[in-house]
Design a protein around this nucleic acid. Structure first.
Lengths: 165, 165
DNA sequence: GCTTAATATCTGCCAAAGCAGACACTGTAT
DNA sequence: ATACAGTGTCTGCTTTGGCAGATATTAAGC
């Protein structure tokens, strides 16, 4: 069960590493979309949180922390801002009074729907030279990348005995 | 000349958007590699800068700003730290005295080489379920994504699977 | 019922990053 | 030479994110 060696220390170069490329692609993508979001008075992160709530990717602060990979304190303050502007409402859960359920207000939902066409347009623009097959393959590979080790332990050691082609 | 419509506002969902997936992949990748870097006393960003200098992706602060997509002030302070620890040296350019050339010291180069095997191991771990063809295709698609609209000085090589097996 | 551990959220403090402006230097035109 | 625009770097000020600790609630053990 020798592990697959896609890279080796002797020949490793940043510019051909998927680590470098993914990081750079993320930065360029945000840079492309962010101005459109900020023109409507939101930070990119605020927008992302509103989308998470709309799409049911998160229902409380904890889940937003996990999704965003952000600190819980940062998320608290982020929600504070969105709540102050009445795009999100906090509602203490009755089942578990530790939990605070986050609910998109009507204004919040309206704002998300208003912004989506712009974001979609930007995404389509970024992918304008891609065929449908390429987008679908990129999506598949990114899903695999995320699922492959996001779920399995990534705790610093070589615990990965799962998988194994 | 109708643009390719990979996404449409009516059906857009965060979890299937390459924007969301790339951002998440980047976050997970950093999360996987960062602990190994910090165990050696560096922040992830400091590591990246050292790699850029090693691989000639940047020679001065301006180029690091463009590569990292960071503010020039942030980069100045980042270089301050690396210079204080003597991994990087500032050298005023004689051709253009506005420019400050950044040079990896011997200690800096040594440190990079010391860290590379760990980073390579982590990358290979993240990609352990990927075939060589998949890594190469992911690399190609990310290059295309970046080059397509980034338009930055991207001396692409396109190849992914160096290092063989 | 009381104690302890775990969970969800929030608050204070510090570091990192963005923004705007200052400064130094270059190149060009007058 | 002087003036002016453009560029690279650096410095304050503010915002954001990370870390640690506090509070409130739940769950399990005695």
């Amino acid at each position: 069960m020798h592990p697959t060696q896609h890279y080796s220390p002797e020949t490793y170069k940043a510019r051909s590493s998927v680590g470098y490329l993914i990081k750079r692609a993320a930065a360029l993508g945000i840079e492309c979309i962010e101005p459109a979001i900020e023109a409507r008075g939101f930070t990119f992160t605020q927008w992302v949180v509103l989308m998470y709530l709309r799409d049911g990717l998160a229902f409380n602060a904890k889940e937003i922390c996990l999704q965003l990979r952000h600190d819980s304190g940062a998320v608290t303050r982020l929600i504070d801002q969105l709540e102050a502007r009445e795009f999100v409402r906090r509602e203490r859960s009755v089942d578990d009074r530790r939990e605070v359920k986050l609910i998109l207000t009507d204004a919040g939902r309206e704002m998300v729907e208003l912004l989506i066409p712009t974001v979609v347009e930007r995404l389509n623009f970024m992918l304008r030279d891609f065929s449908a097959g390429e987008v679908s393959e990129l999506t598949r590979l990114l899903h695999k990348f995320i699922g492959g080790f996001g779920a399995a332990g990534n705790t610093g050691d070589g615990a990965g005995t799962e998988g194994g082609e």
